[in-house]
Design a protein around this nucleic acid. Structure first.
Length: 423
RNA sequence: GGAGGGGUGGCAGAGUGGUUGAAUGCACCGGUCUUGAAAACCGGCGUGCACGGAAGUGUACCGGGGGUUCGAAUCCCUCCCCCUCCGCCA
């Protein structure tokens, strides 16, 4: 939720920032509603004050046995109550419109984010390694996996439809090994605390991180009141919801390996082949809760934590900074890491690391004790460290041999019980 | 799934219709005393919102929402959560 007081004070800052994301001016509509709400609120509060005063007088009159005066006061109260109720209806209606406006508006991009309308204007920051060279024509991961007999989309489709896969044998093991490797690095070297959070959450939780109310169609919902998480960012970030954290507890760094579920509404026709875009995939997620002044440095740090995995696996990658037009709803600044995929002859997203500033913290009401009587909103950051499924894809493609076997990256061998080649 | 008991300020814990935003204790902050500290004593000590330059004033909040009433922490409905016992179960 955006800070309505800040918008009142500085509407042009907001409109300018939103304009960078391609939005029309919003603050006029917001402030018009805000004025109406406050005017009605004032009238209501005055009526409440009158009611409270009269009620107390009724109590006194009754005690003194002055029935006539009590009755007279009761009509006064009844009048006030009419005003209160009328204003209440009006306030509720206007507030819900106002909240809908505020809740539906994305975070403001950080000043440092490059302008741009879409992903074509994202900025390359650096390239690590070199695109893998082959002296044969490299195959796509799904062809490799199918040939190995360890990646079966048809069987998955029989039970679940499209965008699912059954991994088996050594490839299933790679999925587990990757998760273990990632978790070990993030917990033992980078200071993240391993968590096993719920993957089913309620609506207010998703509201907190910004998936709701605007992006419900991207989520799977149960027949009850739960949604499946699209990323562990949701569960991990909401760990601090509705709390006031002692300053000396910050930063809080958490990681979790969970399945993620995405309906992929609107992505029909994209990446229909292979494991790149599935309804279900595993991911090791990183979340940091920090003081506002620390979030920029934490963002850089988190990015390097994610990069570290690719370095260990010796997978070539590229780091890009998203332009304003490609920024996610809750992010004020985002770095993406893209891994080299030989079969597509390009880099594809494998991690996204975002600083959300206080955007999610406001929605979750997550604060920290800044000083006596001064609680401030924390900053939240999240990043993939990494998407396990896509890392498996990258390994298959970059480590393939001409005979269709896969060399296991050195760093992964210990996690594979010593297996060095998958064939 | 069945039966019962609870959710009150940072914590503990009173409070079952009327000046209660809420006793008391602990914690915390300021002060007195002390060489210093402790103890003792005195004072202070919730949050959101609105109005105001500020001091402050008003209002709402005792798990969430709704209702009864002139008036609700207190009565009613509903939802959520926690606990105990029974049943079932990875």
């Amino acid at each position: 939720m955006h800070d309505i007081k800040a918008i009142r004070q500085n509407p042009s800052t907001y409109d300018k920032a939103w304009a960078r994301r391609g939005l029309d001016p919003q603050t006029k509509a917001i402030l018009d509603k805000d004025i109406l709400v406050r005017q009605a609120l004032k009238v209501q509060q005055e009526a409440e004050s009158a009611r409270n005063t009269a009620s107390k007088q009724i109590g006194m009159a009754m005690r003194e046995g002055n029935k006539a005066e009590a009755e007279c006061l009761k009509t006064e109260v009844a009048g006030a109550k009419n005003v209160i109720a009328a204003m209440g209806v009006q306030i509720e209606a206007e507030k819900s419109v106002l909240n809908e406006l505020l809740a539906g508006l994305p975070n403001l991009p950080s000043d440092s984010v490059p302008d741009g309308v879409d992903e074509d204007e994202n900025v390359d920051l650096r390239i690590w390694g070199e695109p893998t060279k082959f002296d044969f024509k490299p195959k796509a991961h799904d062809d490799l996996g199918a040939a190995l007999g360890m990646m079966d989309f048809e069987t998955a489709a029989k039970m679940s439809g499209s965008r699912f896969v059954v991994l088996s044998g050594k490839l299933a093991r790679v999925d587990r090994a990757l998760a273990a490797l990632m978790l070990d690095i993030q917990t033992e070297e980078n200071g993240y605390t391993e968590c096993v959070p719920p993957v089913l959450v309620r609506a207010p939780t998703l509201y907190g991180t910004g998936q709701l109310p605007k992006f419900e169609e991207d989520l799977f919902k149960t027949t009850g009141d739960h949604y499946l998480i699209p990323t562990a960012e949701v569960s991990l970030t909401n760990i601090v919801r509705e709390s006031i954290i002692d300053a000396d507890k910050l930063p809080i760094r958490m990681t979790a390996h969970t399945p993620c579920f995405r309906s992929e509404a609107g992505s029909a026709g994209q990446d229909t082949k292979g494991m790149i875009r599935q309804h279900q995939f595993n991911k090791v997620e990183l979340v940091s809760i920090v003081k506002p002044e620390d979030s920029e440095a934490e963002h850089i740090r988190m990015l390097s934590c994610a990069e570290e995995i690719l370095k260990r696996l010796e997978l070539p990658y590229k780091v890009i900074e998203l332009c304003t037009g490609d920024l996610g709803f809750g992010a004020r600044k985002t770095y993406d890491i893209e891994v080299w995929l030989p079969s597509q002859n390009c880099y594809r997203e494998i991690s996204s690391v975002s600083n959300c500033g206080d955007f999610q913290a406001r929605r979750m009401n997550a604060r920290y004790k800044h000083a006596e009587k001064d609680n401030r909103f924390v900053h939240t950051l999240n990043g993939s460290g990494l998407a396990v499924g896509r890392t498996l894809v990258a390994i298959l493609e970059n480590y393939q041999n001409e005979d269709g076997s896969i060399t296991v990256p050195k760093a992964l061998v210990p996690y594979m019980s010593g297996v060095e080649v998958i064939s």
